[in-house]
Write a protein that binds this DNA or RNA. Sequence first.
DNA 1: GGCTCCCGCCACGTT
DNA 2: AACGTGGCGGGAGCC
Length: 837
Amino acid sequence: MEISGCLTLKDLISAKKSRPDQEKDARSWQKENMCDRFRISPRVPLKGEPIDLSKQKGLTPERYPITPVKVADRPLADPWTPTANLKMLSSVASPEIRDREKKELFRPIENNEQEDAGLDTQQFETVDDMDDLDKRPSRKQKSLGLLCQKFLARYPSYPMSTEKTTISLDEAASSLGVGRRRIYDIVNVLESLNLVSRVAKNQYRWHGQHNLNETLRNLQREGERQQYSAQIAYFQHKDFGTEQRKDSQPAASMELPEMDCPSVNLTSCFPLASAGSRKDKSLRIMSQKFVMLFLVSTTKIITLEIAAKILIEESQDISDHSKFKTKVRRLYDIANVLTSLGLIKKVHVTEERGRKPAFKWIGPVEFKTESGKFIDQDITTTSPASKRDATAENSKQQRLLRHSSFTHVQSISTVKRKVCSEPSSPHKAPEALLQHDSYSSKMAHLSAICRQKIEEDSGSFKFASNNPAHRDVGHLPFSVVVPVPVDPDYCTRDSGHQKRPASPNKIQSQLKVMASSSGHGFLPNQPYMYVPSTSVFMLCGNSGNEKSLDGLHGARSSSPSDKKTTEDGDQPAKRQRIGSTDDGPLPLVVPKICSSDRGSCDTSLPHNSPEPCKEDNLHSVASSSRQEETTELTKEQVASAALPQYLYLPSSTGLNGFNFFLPANQTTGAMGISQSQLPHLNVPYVMVPSSALAAFPFLCSPAVTSSASSDHALSTASLNYSLAGMTTPPHIMFRTPSIPETSPEMQQGVPPTSASPPSASPATADSSISAVLPLPVKPQKSPTPLTPKSIRPVHKDTFFKTPGSLGVSPALRKNERPHVRNSSSAQRRLDICSTTD
DNA sequence: GGCTCCCGCCACGTT
DNA sequence: AACGTGGCGGGAGCC
């Protein structure tokens, strides 16, 4: 797909010269150009942007003088000649414009502009001139974007801290010559970004952009938590080709309720929305969500269609056409304001289906790095290692409590918990779950949606029921002790590429294997990991072919519809798609035990369709224990019959940590499942953020590698699809046999993460992994065995941008976007606490 | 004809 | 009851 950029200010200017484009320019000006004006980038009070004119005048009722704008500073290049201006004006002025009746209305604005007018006014002057001509401003001139520009021009982008700029809505409305209603539209969006805050009736306080980055950071984090990337991918993938069908999509509708939660949470992160009234001030929430979509998107381009869809789903609205239209209208409103802020610009994405309106994020993205802390913190909080206990939860909540809306959030989360999380943890819902409630629920939500979609799309597969009630089914009824292969031959490796200097021996020593004791097949002195049953999900499927991964995803992606991704080229699209299905909602890819043939798998392995993994997280997978339509199996049955390919160990915080996949065979021994049944995957995989492993070198076991590289790739690929946060945090510990799996939780005390040097792997700064896992991955020829690029598209991380996701494929990340989330976990933690307030 | 999105009705919440 | 907010969608401008 190609994206046609919107007109830039520059373009606009140049365009103005040419008559034909004038109108277009005018419009674009409103939208695109505005961006320039209010650049987020730390800029001192706007410089010479067109709109600045209006503000220059000191009009600001609030009387904050804005530094004079310099024309020179403008990005614009082309000088504007008076003639050109005239031309433009004339072109812009259309017959309709001339309604005198309304002219009055706009007077104020015009006047202001005129006053302000200097050279800068040039662009806007046109409007003024027109007015002078008794022409009523054209629709363009009345656009919300332009109005917002004017509004923004009244206030300094970076007001002095000492200043307390108060905005009177009435005053603003009157001075801008518009109805108050319009001001609300603007203010609501600004408020969503904390640029302003409501202090009293009709009174807002102008904060400027001082906290914008922080706000964006928080939004990004929230977006990650909400798995928006997954949603985006989902819709992209599914595209609307199936729209019709989509409309009816049951899954989506189902999800809606849960999706709301995110929004609520969102608001909780920001003072702005006071939860509660009037749909929580949807415009604000919509704005935040909209921004989040950009922030979590790898391509930074979001089509209105997708945004609307996502927002509709979240709001539980019926996805009828009217709703969609309404959403789109609102999105335009928001987009206009955001454009004025210079955060986005309009573009068009050309897809197979045609050209679609979209917006591209042009705002700051660097804050991400800084934000890393936040993410980490969350993760940390949730990470089992740290304290998945109530304490963590409490701390987290406290943070949230700062926000008025939090209470609301809580309630919601509680509900969710009941619905989603609770079921997922057979044994007992770890408190950690609470932390992840929203996240988990969302993921579950997505999974469900995806699953349905997938099912629909590929009717051939069946997934374990996602029924929330059954989600836990996936959990194995037992805890698992996984032998950690120790092989000198294998060097320790960092998640991905880095090899750890640390010698395996060291680890071994640390891990003191006591295998001797068990008959599980532990070797003497072999270290093992203890995995509490609650943390274990069994993934069943064919092992096998890469197809499993790719095929699963690929099948869909290959479809024409897949390409429709709005973003950029095929690649992105593909990624997204994959992400949607795999990454997002479907964190897991399950290797097939059976032959690649799905059909066969289905029959033989009721629960093992590859799909399940993808789609759903563990829940479904694990829960694969039950297929909705087909047979229901007891957990035990599943374990034995399903021939688990992998055991999925969700990291406590799916966000930051990697989820672990253990080859079933590896664990089966402990479980009593015959390995013979698990032919393909002999390699135990455990994926953890490298940083977390800093302290622990990976152990690679020779045994593991039996499978061909392909398998390995597969398995690795599967790793990529971890479902963060879906479930309870895994409790994993290395113990000596002597120390049996006593209460896992208690034992999990090995939170290497904190200790681990952040430097370990840039790719995954998140150290929040709850457990230290020995990773028996045989060094592959490819430097990045863990991240089968072949299988996965580069940007897949979108989905996993979520804190947990970050950790997904360290290798990938490292290579692809090392810079992102570089901050150390410690740093992130610090950040987390800081709020935009 | 579709995309944009202005405009203002009207409902909800607050004062 | 009046007023503040803001959801909502008709319908017109614009392409």
